[in-house]
Amino acid sequence: MQERNFPIGAPILEVKNISLSFGGVKAITDSSFSVLQHEVRAIIGPNGAGKSSMLNCINGIYKPQEGQIKFKGEVLEKNNPNLIAQKGLSRTFQNLALFKRMSVLDNILVGRKLHMTANFLQVAFQTPQAREEERVNRERCEEIVEFLEIEDIKDTPVGKLPYGLQKKVELGRALATEADILLLDEPMAGMNVEEKREMCRFILKVNDELGTTMVLIEHDMGVVMDISDNVVVLDYGKIIADGPPEEVRVNQEVIDAYLGVAHD
């Protein structure tokens, strides 16, 4: 592998023995794994394995009953999504969670929220600082729009866009945060080969140029093999394998877990 701008470093995110259940349903059982700084990490597993629940625990939407999660050496105690976002973590959602009635550009601008400090009075009176901040952040979002090649739809309300484009916008919004780590829940679901290839290119480019750590859930094994540095495999809420893709692929337990489960 060629030299990387940001070589893989020490763990940035550590999930330690977390368990999560909904009433009687155990979504995650005593699971631990770490994500290394600057790596591209894939989470795979059959449907209902607990992958999305895992991301929701990390990002503070779900509160695991047991275990702890450490981010940048700090235990995330009061796990509230907005506080965790402030520490430098952003994400996308499996079922799209865009601001439907807002334009593409406005959606991405919301991703800049933590970079904008002018309060409502400064904005109301359009103080020089507020205007400058708005200008700089708009420019930044225009760059992201350009990077994702969605200039022609930037003023369209996202609710009117086809699914694939919405997925792209959601990635754009996450990129706009310039978080240290991005959690992407099936960013390529429902895309054709071409679109998937494009999405992979975006993810790898951001990882390479900004050093953003990526954690992504993906069902397409080809994609996973291609872009991830390490893979975690979940099955029935338990981690059954954790390592480089070529090792995970030949792991007997993983092969068994996928047997009989139709995946494309």
């Binding site: 990002n59 939407i61 509230n80 999504p81 907005n82 976002a85 402030q86 952003s90 994400r91 959602f93 969670a97 865009l98 601001f99 439907k100 009635r101 807002m102 919301v110 991703g111 929220k113 933590l114 919004r173 945060t177």
Partner: peptide, 13 residues
Amino acid sequence: RDMDIAAESMGIS
């Protein structure tokens, strides 16, 4: 208004 969970995940209180 449009998606409170996503808003919160972007750092909005």
